[in-house]
């Protein structure tokens, strides 16, 4: 698991240029990042890393960093 892969996934799905997404980015920073995009991101992360997030965890994530930590917690 690499942080850069996760950032790439965000960039692909939100359809933004490289460098737009950082660990600090939240949904309010990018117009296209609505609730449906979040669902899409979660599905892509789950498929990519072969994991399944807990519903309550998904509801508390805000920043890209939060997603990274969530993936890391599952990969342990």
């Amino acid at each position: 698991m690499s942080v850069s892969t996760i950032i790439e996934i965000f960039q692909d799905i939100l359809d933004v240029k490289k460098g737009t997404v950082s660990l600090k980015t939240t949904s309010s920073d990018i117009d296209q990042w609505d609730s449906l995009a979040t669902v899409n991101i979660i599905a892509a992360l789950e498929e990519e890393f072969g994991i399944k997030f807990k519903l309550e965890d998904i509801q508390t994530v805000k920043t890209v960093q939060d997603f990274v930590e969530l993936v890391q917690a599952h990969k342990k």
């Binding site: 790439e8 996934i9 692909d12 359809d15 892509a44 498929e47």
Partner: peptide
């Protein structure tokens, strides 16, 4: 390739 489709929809 489901993961690629999920990620690359916009580019595709």
């Amino acid at each position: 390739d489901v993961i690629k489709i999920l990620r690359k929809k916009k580019v595709l």
